[in-house]
């Protein structure tokens, strides 16, 4: 089993591939604008690694305060980048079609759906995920409120709910239970934690802390 233990500190494999990306990144930036070369590489099945590298383009973005310089395929969504390449699995994949809200993250402070965002389009942007919502080991007031009010059951929609809840207050859409219900309707919860989620948001809103 030791070979396959989950590795929370980014597996070596990840780092290695990232180094690979970096090696190619300057070349890749140039290549990215010459489609025929790339397509040719793909269709004539050059060495797969090479072809794979050509299809990648560079991306710089900040995730939870950490700057990342990556080379990725344009088709990679922000959600898959977070989950599969950066090992930030707190952002959930519930539907992958923008219909459930489980992948809600903040991009430049705005709540958006990571599954419907191409990672390459986030160049230069600041992404905050559930892992980066609070500093260090402490919980964000919204996370605390979700614990206290039992605003979760299975926990799968929870990170998205919390990211959405924080934005809901910041946007000024948490002035009544009804308003919260409407503005939280983009985050589905199949377990039925809604009344508790609303209670958690109302309490954080009432506390009036800067979020």
């Amino acid at each position: 089993m030791t070979d396959h233990q989950p590795d929370d500190n980014n597996s070596e494999g990840l780092d290695e591939s990232r180094r690979d990306f970096l090696k190619h990144s300057s070349l890749l930036t140039a290549m990215a604008l010459t489609p025929s070369t790339v397509l040719k590489a793909a269709s004539s099945q050059w060495d797969e690694r090479l072809a794979g590298a050509f299809e990648k383009i560079s991306l710089s973005l900040e995730v939870n305060g950490t700057k990342h310089s990556l080379a990725i395929e344009p088709r990679v969504t922000l959600l898959d980048l977070l989950r599969e390449q950066l090992a930030l699995t707190g952002t959930k994949k519930g539907c992958d079609y923008g219909q459930c809200g489980a992948c809600t993250v903040h991009v430049d402070g705005r709540r958006v759906l990571a599954c419907m965002s191409l990672a390459v389009m986030q160049e230069g942007r600041k992404v905050t995920t559930i892992e980066g919502l609070a500093g260090g080991d402490t919980l964000h007031p919204m996370q605390e409120a979700f614990v206290k009010h039992d605003g979760l059951q299975c926990g799968y929609c929870t990170p998205g709910q919390i990211m959405s809840a924080v934005a809901c207050i910041r946007e000024g859409h948490a002035n009544s239970a009804e308003e919260i219900q409407e503005y939280m309707s983009g985050n589905l919860c199949r377990c039925g934690a809604y009344p508790n989620i609303v209670a958690a948001i109302m309490e954080v809103k009432k506390e009036g802390k800067k979020l």
Binding site: G101, R111, V112, L113, S164, C168, M184, S185, G186
Partner: peptide
């Protein structure tokens, strides 16, 4: 229309 997140996109 849609949801708060989608309206932000």
């Amino acid at each position: 229309g849609a949801s708060a997140q989608l309206r932000n996109m």
